[in-house]
Design a binder for these strands. Structure first.
Lengths: 197, 197
DNA sequence: AATCAGTACGGAGGCAGCATCCGTTTTGAT
DNA sequence: ATCAAAACGGATGCTGCCTCCGTACTGATT
């Protein structure tokens, strides 16, 4: 028996079915209406009562975290690929874009993520993925610094913040051209002036 | 008769009193609870009914814009001072900080400001101040570019976005040190490498 | 001073969403 | 087939939004 399975010994059929339906519906609603979507509507469309939704996911953040689980895993997988590249500068750049995409998955997502990153609430379900991302970013940054591609004094957390705010702006309907300008601006900010090959 | 006075000829005493009370109370509530504060509570504390509040300020944005009026004027005044400086680079930097402070006046303010800046809704009361700020920023940028302090290709709007997102991050409780790092990062991004005095 | 018409007031009311509680139903185990 | 634990779901109470309309106030007019 794996650790993720039941500790007692009863994985009720109900529970799994409802949980799956809720996750599926919630993802659709988050996609269409953003993270602020009506949880009541999600429950109704999933064919369960509000009580059931709240029992499975006590807070909006818990539901969000569960829905994001899949995407988080994909992101981590992408990181593995990215790390394969020899070029630390290129790797960092790709990683930042990957994070930005992740943050942009649903409209309004950066808000709760920032709240979780600040992380005075240790039981916020979004804190864990955030910490993972920050750490991963920091590793990329350090690698790129060692290779002389990134200024000293830049931390992973700084670029995490930058990616998060870029995603926030993106989610607010700014045109792609302006976004690219902003990304370029930020890249100019962290890049080492004279890269040493 | 000035243009800002009545066009017909009746400035009812009621109206002025209530409007003033609403603005005063709203500012306090925005300060304490952010831009999402309960308008019902504002009305109640101002001693008027909800109807009166909504007649004076049909939307939350209208109320926000009215409350921000004073601050906007201060900001413009500060701009005048800043322009006096001969140093365009220093002027730009100060201007960006001034804007950031303005955006940080109330928690959650960047959100509606961004929505207004994107500006497909021409009757959004926040659009006007936003456009003014963008234009002003662009002037500072161009001045600094002429003096060779800022890269070509940087637009005022880009730095407006940057300031807005910095304020957003700030409003989400990030520590001052990280903010300073981010500001430095952005500054490194727009500054010309070899300034020509 | 008294009247009048226009204006503004304010609260009741309808609506939507959140979150909880508890009587009823489902489920796996025996 | 029976049972107790576990899960369900909807009724419920709450808060906030926004509107509508009978009532009250105000400034102008005589």
């Amino acid at each position: 028996m794996s650790a993720t399975e039941q500790r007692g010994r009863k994985p009720r059929a109900d529970v799994q079915r409802n949980r799956a339906a809720l996750l599926e519906t919630a993802q659709r609603h988050f996609l269409q209406h953003g993270v602020g979507t009506s949880l009541e509507a999600v429950a109704k469309e999933a064919g369960v009562g509000p009580g059931t939704l709240y029992r499975h996911f006590p807070t909006r953040e818990a539901l969000l975290a569960a829905v994001l689980q899949t995407r988080s895993e994909e992101l981590v997988a992408r990181q593995a690929d990215i790390e394969q590249l020899g070029d630390a500068a290129e790797a960092l750049e790709q990683w930042l874009r990957a994070m930005e995409d992740y943050f942009s998955a649903f409209s309004g997502l950066p808000e709760p993520l920032m709240a979780a990153a600040r992380a005075q609430e240790p039981d916020n379900p979004l804190t864990i993925p955030c910490d993972i991302l920050i750490t991963a970013t920091d590793e990329h940054v350090q690698a790129a610094q060692s290779a002389g591609h990134v200024r000293a004094g830049v931390r992973g957390y700084d670029l995490f913040l930058a990616a998060c705010s870029t995603a926030w702006i993106k989610g607010n309907g700014t045109d792609e051209e302006s976004l690219d300008r902003l990304r370029t601006l930020i890249a100019s900010g962290y890049r080492q002036r004279n890269a040493q090959p």
